[in-house]
Design a protein around this nucleic acid. Sequence first.
DNA 1: TATTGTTATACTCTATAACTATA
DNA 2: TATAGTTATAGAGTATAACAATA
Lengths: 146, 146
Amino acid sequence: MATPATRRSPATEAWKLVGDLMATQRGWFLDVVREFELSPPQLFALRALEPGEATPMGDLAAHLHCDNSNVTGIVDRLERRGLVERRAATHDRRVKHLVLTDEGVAVRRRIETRLEAGPNPLAALDPADQRALRDLLRKAAAAQES
Amino acid sequence: MATPATRRSPATEAWKLVGDLMATQRGWFLDVVREFELSPPQLFALRALEPGEATPMGDLAAHLHCDNSNVTGIVDRLERRGLVERRAATHDRRVKHLVLTDEGVAVRRRIETRLEAGPNPLAALDPADQRALRDLLRKAAAAQES
DNA sequence: TATTGTTATACTCTATAACTATA
DNA sequence: TATAGTTATAGAGTATAACAATA
């Protein structure tokens, strides 16, 4: 028998509610991915690369929670589309740095805008509740980092 | 230039914080998936099938946001492992119903328990904040359904 | 004619192991 | 010896198109 909702801690139930909310938005998220003609890992990679920063391939692999060997192919495809470039690192010649091209930066920005403008299930709350929720989540995020 | 955090609505910032929280837990989630020797779609499929209920293949495809043809393979593998069974539907002989086996029900329950017991970034909040957060999310979920 | 599930096909993601060039 | 990235390989997910059985 599953734990009844009333037996779960508020944090556990809240976490489950967060998961449910995310699940309801998954279809929309996949639509955005296809709108940009990317795959989910490719879109995650673009979001992971900060404009103006140089990211080692291995760091991207860690961010994507996959093996280094996978990143080779993912970056190959982004590079072929002119969104990313590989550059030699100066301090260690084994390392290759990833840098967004100008178009990569532009596409990344359009993606961020698109995701932010999407259907937000929290917008259904009244303004006071929205602010209260935001503040609690900020607090949780801050506690998370420590 | 990106929208400054202060120019975003509280709901937008809250939604972004939710996404960030989920992202920090992705590695742990993938660990659980591998612990059960499943793939993410296979685990989502098990979670979608309610014990004692018969689910048409097409309904599962809609739930997973993929084409019907993909479900054939995903279900093949779950069936080969003895977690799911295909059954003929009575009212429409084109339809095949999916039913969890006894072992499928047991594995599904273990998965739910494991996911619920996992690291919960919201547990860092004090109890009063946890309850407040839970209540706000309940409200958002309720508003979502209408 | 339209729909459900399957098959065939091509592409992408994924992990593992072996390789290279560095360190 | 160890590490960063690549290549080779095999298995899995994904969409599209074509198909059989059924509606």
